[in-house]
């Protein structure tokens, strides 16, 4: 079925957000090697632009709801776009937060974050999730959601590696915080993927609810 023009405009907005975030990601990788105040400021400014892009997408969605009163797949596409634009904005904020942590915690220290591999895995999920969303591919989306367990495991691995090194101070703190941020970014990749599944099939996957630990049965 031919996509209405207003949905094309909304998807263009999402694509623009994705391009901006890709740029921010590249900048973050360079800062991870070596703290750079100028670059950090640039990243912060770029993140602000992503927020503006999010507002633009939301405006387009609201206008579509008012002017076109979409139903069925078109309605799901609009509501998903609102959620996905929020997820993308959050991801850009998280990328910016990584740079902030490097700047704040690592100031004057020489330890570089060693969670780069985890970040790369998380970023791959984000890319795949957006690809699944833009190409309306629920199979790819489902595979992204399945990948989240690996990121969760990687996060726990970082925590367990550092928890016995409290004396490690700033480096321990930095790696733990960044790992946590990456874990959250990957969660947003799952949210985007869940929106793809909803948009295409109409079925909701409950990925936004917190993963609670299983109950312990005391004997």
């Amino acid at each position: 079925m031919e996509e209405p023009t207003y949905l094309k405009e909304i998807n263009n907005g999402i694509s623009e957000m994705y391009k901006s975030i890709m740029e921010i990601y590249g900048d973050v990788l360079s800062v991870m090697g070596e703290p750079d105040e100028v670059k950090a400021k640039e990243i912060c400014e770029k993140t602000k632009s992503v927020m503006e892009q999010e507002e633009k997408v939301i405006d387009l969605c609201v206008e579509a709801l008012i002017r076109h009163q979409p139903f069925a797949g078109d309605l799901r596409a609009v509501t998903s776009a609102m959620r996905v634009s929020y997820d993308l904005a959050r991801i850009s904020r998280y990328l910016s937060n990584i740079v902030q942590v490097i700047g704040d915690v690592n100031s004057g220290l020489s330890c570089a974050p060693d969670v780069k591999e985890l970040l790369e895995s998380g970023w791959e999920m984000i890319q795949e999730s957006i690809r699944s969303y833009l190409s309306k591919d629920p199979i790819l989306a489902t595979s992204v959601i399945e990948e989240d367990a690996k990121i969760d495991a990687g996060y726990r691995k970082v925590l367990s590696k550092y928890k016995d090194y409290a004396a490690g101070g700033a480096c321990v703190l930095m790696n733990g915080l960044i790992a946590r941020i990456i874990e959250r970014m990957a969660d947003h990749a799952c949210y985007i993927s869940a929106e793809t599944v909803y948009m295409v099939t109409g079925s909701r996957i409950g990925v936004r609810a917190p993963k609670c630990p299983p109950e312990h049965h005391h004997q």
Binding site: F71, A72, G73, L75, R76, G202, S203
Partner: peptide, 10 residues
């Protein structure tokens, strides 16, 4: 209106 089952309805 959110998730019609039939493609014709959609």
């Amino acid at each position: 209106f959110e998730s019609p089952k039939s493609p014709i309805t959609e």
